[in-house]
């Protein structure tokens, strides 16, 4: 079942094109990530999905509804965490939950939400006295209090320390385990790699790639690297002869082998056959970080030749 279907979305603010041409769809039960550099159009895209902004062109369907025309009906069925939106400082945790549950026809029992999310001890604490992590936890709870079918989380972990960020990831996985589809906007690669089933990379208002995190990595950065110090002099041709190897470089006693496929196994097998021990063996696995840089870095200069890039780079100014 398709929860979000966006086709050829376009949104301009005056002369500035925030979203040029974005299409994607999200299936039920997915954690779908939107990644992109600052000003790429991530937030504008989700705000159109939520019905908070009206698209200039394109068609959107969320839970079978038109987000703009049926905004109110849609917002009864989705939970939204917006970037930089707070609640009054003196409002207590339980009061915020009670208030937000009054906005929905079939709210969840917020008392259980408090227990489940480990904030029961902070029940009577005013919002201003919560730590950053506790505030984020409360925001997720507020997004969940209306028993939504879809939650949209925009830059949820920005400004959190690494531990609080990891804790938040576990919570998001629990949300999905409860059958809720999650649309996640982030600029943390590690977060997308860890959480998302599929990731859409957008840059300058256009889709660069949509794939699973591992799919993105192998498409954008197919090359792996293996580095080691051989215990005995090594003939370069032993390695260059392997089908997995694309390049070998030797600096002093260090050898660096680049290639793809099961590179590590191929290299170590050859070394073993020649009774050479690889000391200080290191494997550089490309991460989503590398993939992201490869996918987006060349675009602003107009070359647009990144692997997996959609046809033709368009140079739109960043906001």
């Amino acid at each position: 079942m398709t929860v979000i279907d966006v086709r050829n979305l376009r949104k301009e603010y005056g002369p500035h094109v925030a979203v040029d041409d974005v299409s994607f769809s999200v299936e039920h039960g997915e954690i779908f990530g939107i990644l992109g550099p600052n000003g790429a159009g991530k937030t504008t895209t989700v705000e159109c999905v939520e019905g908070l902004r009206r698209a200039d062109a394109g068609t959107l369907e969320v839970l079978g509804l038109d987000p703009h025309a049926d905004g109110k009906r849609l917002r009864r069925r989705i939970g939204i965490q917006l970037q930089e939106s707070q609640i009054p400082e003196r409002l207590k945790v339980w009061e915020a939950l009670d208030l937000h549950s009054s906005f929905y026809d079939t709210p969840t029992d917020w008392g259980r939400l408090l227990d489940d999310w480990g904030l029961a001890a902070k029940r009577d604490t005013p919002f201003a006295k919560l730590s950053g992590g506790q505030k984020q936890r409360l925001f997720i709870m507020l997004a969940l209090v209306g028993s939504p079918e879809l939650v949209v989380l925009d830059e949820l972990t920005t400004g959190l320390d690494p531990q609080a960020r990891r804790d938040t990831w576990e919570l998001i996985e629990r949300v999905r385990a409860g059958g809720v589809t999650v649309l996640l906007v982030t600029h943390f690669m590690e977060e997308a790699e860890r959480l998302c089933d599929r990731v859409m990379v957008i840059d300058a208002g256009r889709v660069v790639a949509v794939d699973s995190p591992s799919g993105l990595i192998s498409r954008a950065v197919p090359e792996q690297r293996v580095r080691f110090r051989p215990s005995a002099p090594l003939d370069e041709r032993l390695l260059t002869g392997l089908p997995e190897v694309t390049r070998v470089s030797m600096t002093g006693t260090r050898v660096e082998v680049s290639g793809n496929g099961d590179l590590l196994h191929a290299v170590t097998s050859v070394l073993a056959r020649h009774r050479i021990v690889a000391a200080d063996l290191r494997v550089d696995q490309p991460s989503l970080d590398d993939a992201f840089v490869a996918l987006t870095a060349s675009r602003p200069h107009g070359s647009g030749g990144s692997p997996g890039a959609s046809e033709g780079a368009s140079d739109h100014r960043r906001g």
């Binding site: 939520e50 908070l52 109110k72 917002r75 009864r76 939204i80 917006l82 930089e84 939106s85 707070q86 609640i87 009054p88 937000h100 906005f103 929905y104 209306g146």
Partner: peptide, 16 residues
């Protein structure tokens, strides 16, 4: 202040 802190914006994301 409610507008500045995004409290109005947050409300816009609810059915109310």
């Amino acid at each position: 202040g409610y507008r500045e802190k995004g409290i109005l914006r947050r409300m816009a994301g609810t059915p109310v």
